[in-house]
Design a protein around this nucleic acid. Structure first.
Lengths: 137, 137
DNA sequence: TTAACTATTTTGACTTTCAAAGTAAACGAA
DNA sequence: TTCGTTTACTTTGAAAGTCAAAATAGTTAA
């Protein structure tokens, strides 16, 4: 026996999250890949181009031009890697961090909105469910 | 007081779902927008270009070229609209429906995988949580 | 009948993307 | 050490996806 309903409900949740994110990013005048980079750098700190490209699911060639634009826009800075001169560390500038915090606040607001009618214990249970599912990917 | 952890855990879930979907679609040799169209048509039946474009979050101009390609590939067919000759109904072909069922099975498998360690009652609770959140967008 | 509106397609420009080739540095085995 | 291989990043050329705006065709309502 298998649960079609659960599967479809998860897909619906994903679709709605996706639409919300696109609308929010466009509304703030950013591009989706650039905000994606900001989210990853903001959540994990400086990292190498290679590593960032992997986390974003794009090639390093694509990332190079994306980071070029973001450096132009003042969101990120390239820094020398201490132990490997082939590598380059990318990190958020002050301005990039401001964009990260702002975007994070929006996520936060959505999370509040979605669980507004949940009790505290339900919210805790929901968190544990997400954590357990995240481990199974 | 607000819950950073829940917000970040939801974002993590979304990111993982997103990576999974991109990998699965690429692996099957399809493109993301085309599978998106297949999912929507498969789940809702034939619809007008306008309606499909809205559900996909793209303009009708963009959709026109996408549907051109999909028609070429034998996934969808354009049909005359009964009551409005300006409109065109788009629907899945036999082959398009096969792709839909195949992709739906993958969603299904993922849903099973993520909740493999859940008890039946936990799975039911999870479903109700998703349903409640989906209503709050 | 005609003006306003709606659905779709076409066009031109821009962004994102990849694969492949190029450059520079690190590594490792002889 | 040195030279072939691997790794990290950038560059380049081509393809896909996207939008805004213009064009086409059909509907609606006064």
């Amino acid at each position: 026996m298998s649960n079609d309903l659960l599967s479809h409900t998860i897909v619906e949740f994903y679709e709605k999250l996706s639409s919300w994110e696109m609308a929010v990013v466009k509304d703030a005048g950013h591009s989706l890949p650039q905000i994606h980079a900001v989210e990853i750098l903001g959540g994990n700190g400086d990292m190498r181009m290679k590593e960032l490209a992997e986390k974003m699911g794009i090639t390093t060639g694509t990332l190079t031009v994306q980071i070029d634009k973001m450096e132009q826009a003042g969101l990120v800075a390239r820094k020398a890697h201490q132990h490997d001169r082939r590598s380059i560390l990318v990190g958020l500038t002050e301005q990039g961090q401001a964009v990260y915090r702002e975007h994070d606040q929006l996520h936060h607001g959505l999370s509040d909105q979605l669980t507004a009618k949940f009790s505290d214990s339900e919210r805790e249970l929901l968190l544990s469910f997400f954590q357990r599912m995240n481990q199974e990917f």
